Simulated scan of single mutants.
Amino acid sequence: MLVTRLDGTVTPVIAEHLEDGLRTAEREHHAACLIEMDTPGGLLQSTREIVQEFLESDAPVILYVTPSRARAVSASAYIAMSAHVAAMAPGTHIGAGTPVTGQGEEAGDTVVADAAAFAVSIAEQRGRNTDFARDMVREGTSVSDREAVRTDVVDPVAPSREALLTELDGRRVAVGPQDSERGVDVTNPWGVKVTLVEVKDVELPEPMRRAMARQAEAERDRRAKVIHAKGEYEAAETPADAADRLEGHPAALHLRILSTMAEISAERNSTLIVPLPMEIFRLVDMLRQPRSPITAEKT
């Protein structure tokens, strides 16, 4: 059994760390990969990468929300629901998966709809409660450990790691892209009863945690700058498209001028408006162009 822990914000570093753990569990033929989690969420893109790894993993993934008062909310709720086995310690909760912007505001309708479809697809693949998956995104629903088990959001509630492994001993789950069946206890075919499980505990050192926090902050800044740049680009592109359309329709341009005059006059200010036909400017341009000299032919 390979054990690792997920604390803090979900970032690309966390996604890489979990991916390495899954590869190790598959390579060394561990019975399962146990991930103990307590996180407030994180980046949606990193969450999608982790969920994809869980859904395609050839090693059973057991996600355990622990210790008591821990949480699997926001992005981590998607991660918990994508595990082969999702377990919770007493006094924990899960949900509140509504996506937010880098400034902490609720994301737009399109992003929320996409996240809701993502959560429902996870629940359908793992046989979990699709109504809860949808509501935790659209309504921000969050439930306790007992309610989560009662409504088929997670599997068991276990007070400790040892109690969880004892309850899961012998359970079979579908793993990998082909959903091939595999047992958490791989010794059953040998006729061997497991009484003791050796656990490898992977703890992140403090310098790596600080580096992950700095990377997450840098990632948020990068995304904010990209969004701002895209907004500036779209703001510049729209007037250019409008100019192209108006150039091909002179009547529409005159209507736009009249509409602008009406908007200015409605403000009741002292602005003096002198409308000039566009033809005058075109005539001025024609007069400013140099004329070719005219020579008379001799006969």
Rank of each mutant, 00 (worst) to 15 (best):
A123R: 02
V175W: 06
G21H: 07
P250D: 01
D145F: 08
A148K: 01
E105P: 05
A236F: 04
D201F: 15
L164H: 05
A116D: 02
V120Y: 01
I264D: 12
S270P: 08
P12V: 09
T166A: 09
M1F: 14
D131W: 05
F281V: 12
E167Q: 12
R146H: 13
H249M: 04
T260D: 03
G170Y: 07
E181Q: 06
T98R: 04
I122W: 00
R222V: 05
E237L: 06
R214Y: 13
A80Y: 00
R222N: 10
N129T: 03
D179G: 08
G97A: 14
L6F: 02
E198L: 12
N188A: 10
E219T: 04
T4S: 09
G176N: 03
R214W: 13
T110F: 14
A96T: 05
P239M: 02
I50F: 02
S142F: 05
R222G: 02
E237A: 14
G21M: 13
E16F: 10
I227N: 06
T141F: 06
L168A: 00
R220W: 00
P250L: 01
D109Y: 06
E106C: 06
A83C: 11
E162F: 09
A31K: 00
D20P: 02
V137N: 01
A174P: 10
A70W: 02
G21L: 08
Q178F: 12
N269R: 07
N129C: 07
A266M: 13
G140R: 03
H29Q: 13
I257L: 13
E263Q: 03
L196N: 13
M88C: 03
K200C: 15
E56H: 15
G170W: 00
M212N: 05
Q103K: 11
E139I: 07
E167I: 15
L287P: 04
M136P: 01
G42D: 02
L22H: 04
G102Q: 11
S259L: 06
S57C: 08
M37D: 01
R27Q: 11
P67C: 09
K200H: 11
E139R: 15
V184D: 00
I280H: 09
G127K: 10
Y233I: 14
N269L: 14
A107D: 11
P205R: 04
E263V: 10
L63R: 08
A15R: 00
Q125E: 09
D114C: 09
K193F: 11
L43E: 04
E198G: 12
S74H: 05
I280A: 15
D109L: 15
L253M: 08
V199R: 10
G231V: 10
S160D: 04
F54K: 04
H84V: 05
D185V: 02
L204G: 01
W190D: 13
E28K: 13
A25V: 04
V65E: 02
E124S: 01
E217V: 08
D241L: 14
V111Q: 06
V274N: 00
A240P: 07
L287W: 13
R138T: 15
A72K: 05
P67G: 00
G97H: 03
S144M: 06
T187D: 14
A123S: 01
D114V: 08
